[in-house]
Design a protein around this nucleic acid. Sequence first.
DNA 1: CGGGGAGGCGCC
DNA 2: AAAAGGCGCCTCCCCG
Length: 584
Amino acid sequence: MRSNPATPAVRWCALGRTTGGDFEALARHADGTASGPTPIPVGDLAGFVAALERDHAPRWVWQSSAAVYPQLLAAGVRVERCHDLRLCHQILRNSQYVADRSALAAAAQWIATPTPEDISPADSGPALFDLDAVPRGHNQPATLADALAEYDRQRSAVNDSSHPGRLSLLLAAESAGALIAAELTAAGIPWDAAEHDRILTRALGPRPASYSDKPALLAAAGARVREALGDPLLSLDSPPKLLRALRAAGIQTSSTSQWELAEHSHPALEPLFEYKKLSRLLTANGWAWLDEWVRMGRYRPVYIPGGVVTGRWASNGGGALQLPRVLRPALRADPGWTLVIADVSQLEPRVLAAMSGDTAMAAAGRDTDLYSGIVATSTIANRDDAKIAMLGAMYGATSGDSGRLVPQLRRVFPRAMGLVDGAADIGERGGTVTTWLGRSSPEADLDWREAQSQASMPGATPQDEQIARRSARERGRFTRNFVVQGTAAEWALAWLAEIRKQLARFPESEHSPSAESSGPVFARRPHLAFFLHDEIIVHTPADQAAQVSEVVQAAAAAAGNLLFPGGAVDFRIDLHITDRATKA
DNA sequence: CGGGGAGGCGCC
DNA sequence: AAAAGGCGCCTCCCCG
């Protein structure tokens, strides 16, 4: 980025759509002046953005990164920063940090997700959905005036909020996440289809001629189950039929799920578990998946920032966030490139320690595995118990091993436990909780509130009370977990954004032909290739891997300090450099 | 015959 | 029936 002395610096530039389908831009300069509106024919957008980005790297204020950024990336244009009005609106309209949410709540058009088709109707493909089904006022492209008005509302909401600093951070992180999500899709996950095929063949047998044919080892496992149950025609894929057959064979189970069947002993169960495992692999990530999702050595899922209420990302397309471990070796770097794989150790407990200011828990995790640290500083006997107790504390376990261990944790870490217990209490009473940076949980829905009031009426039956109590506890577990999961998601966004920023400063490496699959922006630079809640994978030219590792480590420290200044909590990164993502 | 719920299981 | 939070996606199966 260079600055051009002939024009004042541009701080931000808002984009909107005209009724004719073109774009309009308004640039706000550092000296307070503005230039625009500038009309931009739809075909000139990439050139306009590239030029302004090169000279000023402004914050791009637009309706939705998901709608506009993929095309910019395809045209070879990367942007440094943006303000994603739709995602930020979602946060602000719900945030308890925002004192007056009425103006945002009234701006209904900002709720829905525009599709890329909304932005470039010129590429008139077949309609992806029935437009009549979309409520009026939703999915409409925003005009420049719409965008400017919404940006004003959002900045006012932040300025007038109880925590302007935290909310600003959250909106910047969420917006950076929106850019990263599009970039991850553009770069793709480097995927070795031949290795995937080898893994499938080893597990299932050779690829059948047709998708409808059962692979040999799956069929063999099925035959063993039928044999053991004495039911040669049984369909194992139908839970009701399988359940009847299991019960007929004397297995007193109420479902066909593994966790319940594991309690029983019967010769049919071992082959049944094998059958379920293989069947799952085949149907979820078998050859059909490979044919559908892997092209030119890349798997390109679509990530959906803010797609989960807690702020975690969701994904569309091939189940990117559920890739089974057994397939990880298929995630493989291009020749001459390598992978930097990093995950945060015990992210959620550490986030809890930081946000609650629990110095004892922070100390337990300093320079060490947190669970081992808990064993060393508490009455909990071993690492497994410490982990189970911690998960139980964050998820709200009340019974089983986990429920029994949680009270021990409560004695050692009263502040951390007080925070999650308090969040649970608020949720049980129908209240709303908020993450560290300001994302609030949804309000209790109407059914929930009705169940509660029903139970408190004079004529309430014991059953009414039971239903109400159960739903109250369920909601308590949700809000208990929300504050931790949501704040962890914020930490992860800050980590990602810092990694992205630093990677963009790397020099371009020598041309590597196979990396062209990563697209024009990333073919010659280390880039993020995968993100999964607390784990990232950077695909990098091999000779830059060591520097990338340093960046990834440093970014974790930076994220910790950004969210929790003072750095009392150590966010430890487990990192390795490898060509193939076999996870240790 | 398509939509959607349920059962089930993969990931964190 | 379920176990302890958040998801996506597969198949089966019922329903309109």
